[in-house]
Amino acid sequence: MIKVVVAGALGRMGQESCKAVLKAEGMELVGAVDTREIGSALGAHLGIADLEIKVSDNLEKTLQDLKPDVLIDFTRPGVVQGNIELAIKNGVRPVVGTTGMSSEEIEKFRELAAANQVGALIAPNFTIGALLMIKFAAEAAKYFPHVEIIELHHDQKMDAPSGTAIKTAEAIAAVRGNMAQGMPSEFEKIEGSRGGNYEGMRIHSVRLPGFVAHQEVILGGVGQTLTIRHDSISRESYMPGLLLAVRKVMSLNHLVYGLENLLFE
């Protein structure tokens, strides 16, 4: 039985994660950590009357008292870094969906996981469809190297561009390299109109109520365009990949960045 604690348990992704673990075969939800509703019954937030787990605001004490196998983290940038460090130093495997970390921070955690021989996974996206989108986009970029990315999320998302958009751009850049696109003499009449620039490709971020998580990769060629799109209609779409990650991380002794490295291995 894999024992799991969820950090950010009262957030939208945290609540979905708790429900998924409770339903999953071979897993046990043993703890919930959040900064809100401290001491309240988790079941009251999930609509499960007989769930006795209490919400804690002390992650370190929770990890030391309950000794879980895995920490699922859906918190926020600025908080997740300390949570990962606490988990690894306590021998708990972090499975992290929180985005907004720099490549330098990820490398630091890679070194920490290796030094402690603790498995860890940081994944910008847990949806299987989004991972396939990235894989297909990288393949298509071999033939259509002119690319722009449009990612659309709900208006409560703190970081831009999304981790998925960055992962997509990295995968495409690995295939085509840094390449200038568009007119060299183009200019912006409103600053930022052309989006962010990553290795010559443009990334555009949309934040509006009504969206969950969506992304288009538009590839242009002579007389044609190719669009690869993925839509997460609900947060349940993340759960099959999340549960896969929880199971896979149990056999790791190092950090993996990107669920695709476990899915397509």
Score class of each variant (00 low, 15 high):
A171T: 10
G39P: 07
E107A: 07
D69I: 00
G163N: 07
E37D: 13
A213H: 09
A174H: 03
A165H: 07
E37H: 15
A141P: 08
L46M: 06
G220S: 14
E107I: 05
G195W: 10
H146M: 10
M133C: 12
M27V: 03
E111A: 13
P94R: 02
K89Q: 15
L63D: 06
A41P: 08
H214K: 09
I150M: 06
A87V: 04
L10R: 14
E260W: 07
V6A: 09
K54F: 00
V118C: 12
G82I: 04
L63Q: 07
V118K: 09
Q15Y: 04
G11V: 07
G177N: 07
E52T: 13
G11R: 03
D155I: 11
G192P: 04
H153T: 15
A130P: 06
A138K: 13
V92M: 08
M179G: 11
G91K: 15
V217I: 15
L112M: 11
M158I: 15
E148T: 14
E105T: 15
G14K: 01
N116A: 11
A141F: 00
S162N: 01
Q64F: 02
L263C: 04
K157Y: 14
A180V: 14
G14R: 08
A49E: 12
S40C: 06
E186D: 11
A180P: 08
S234P: 00
A165Y: 08
T168E: 06
S17Y: 05
N253I: 02
I106R: 08
G241L: 00
A120L: 09
I48D: 07
K135R: 15
L59M: 12
D231H: 08
C18E: 08
E105L: 15
V217D: 03
G200E: 08
I172K: 03
N125G: 12
I203P: 02
D69S: 01
P145F: 02
S193D: 12
G43M: 00
I149V: 12
E139I: 11
N261I: 05
L131Q: 14
Q117E: 14
K248M: 05
P240Q: 04
S103Q: 15
T168K: 05
L208Y: 14
E28W: 00
E25H: 05
V147E: 02
I38M: 09
V92N: 12
I233L: 12
A165P: 07
E188Q: 10
L51G: 03
I128V: 14
L219R: 07
G196K: 08
I166S: 00
G195M: 13
L63N: 10
I128W: 11
K54N: 05
K189W: 05
L46V: 04
R202S: 10
H230W: 11
V95N: 00
R207E: 12
E16L: 05
Q181T: 11
A169N: 09
I72A: 07
Q117T: 01
I233C: 00
A20R: 00
M201C: 13
G31T: 09
L226G: 03
F109V: 01
